[in-house]
Amino acid sequence: MGSIYMESLILAKSNLSYWLRQLRKEMALIGPLKGENNDIVFKTVENIHEIILDCPALIPSPKEFIFPQKEDMFRFSKDKVENLRNDKKRLIFGVRSCDISAIILFDRFYGEKFVDDYYMSRRNNTVFISIGCNNPDPTCFCIGLGSGPFLSLGFDIQFSDLGDRYLVEIGSTNGMDIVKKFIHLFSQPKKSDYDDQYEAMLSSQARFEKRINLENARQKILFEKVDDSFWEGVAKRCFECGGCVYECPLCTCFNVIDRKYSETEGIRIREWDTCMFRGFTKMAGNIWPADKKVMRTKRWYFHKLIYYPEQFGKFGCVGCGRCTITCPGRIDMATIAYRLKVGENERKAD
């Protein structure tokens, strides 16, 4: 967050860990590290040299740092209410471009009209350093949405790996703040550095396996009236796990729950919620407006494909491919967009 800013610098790879170490004195440093077995996950960085930058979009998305799965809102007692907004300074290093594209929309969603103070407090105190993807996953399709693999604006800081050095593009004042103090570690880029970045981007683009055209899917729904039996078929495979929503870097829904520690003390928390559950729209008096699974699965796709463009001029999907990984029923965005394109019958004939 912060206002827009634009400047490019070069950081030698050998300077990276010194820079991060200095920054870590002022803020928590979080980055992609080895988890169980071959997994890579975002964690607090203990050893800077263990950061793994050559990784795909990680599960779960970095929205967990600005909109956590569970967040304490208030602590209340008999005569006091304490607002538990989190304003700890953090640097999240190694985020993917798709996630930055999502955060740009998050900023609009939570920042416009009514400002969500829990989100904004975290957001104002978090700097994201994203990295242009050199190595997209087979599930990735940001390329079809313009939300990756490299961004031209919207990031705090974007790294492009140029072999022995990074091209460091600074896109916000928050980003500049953490560079400014250590400007001696950086140098000015040459024209050839931009050429190398362009080359890296071309080579990354060539590696994408999926070409998903969501516009195609949107038009199909809007103008060709997709049969309800199509959505019935989708809903039939839904496991109601909520994974697509939990994983989605653009899903924003939450539930608010009170927990009592005693008669007068307790906390009010919020938790990720998902429209995939029938209880999501439940009303008092045993009324379940979305009791049928098909209403809920359809709603999710309509929100992302139809209403997001109406509201924000962008799809509610950045092509990170997480739902492809996490959907046990294989009814993720990429699959559905593909099935909308080819139609059910042709798919069966495959």
Partner: peptide, 16 residues
């Protein structure tokens, strides 16, 4: 069903 009243929690969201 509403949890926030201010267009954030998503529960009352219906077709845009």
């Amino acid at each position: 069903h509403m949890k926030c009243g201010v267009g954030k929690c998503g529960h009352c969201y219906a077709d845009g």
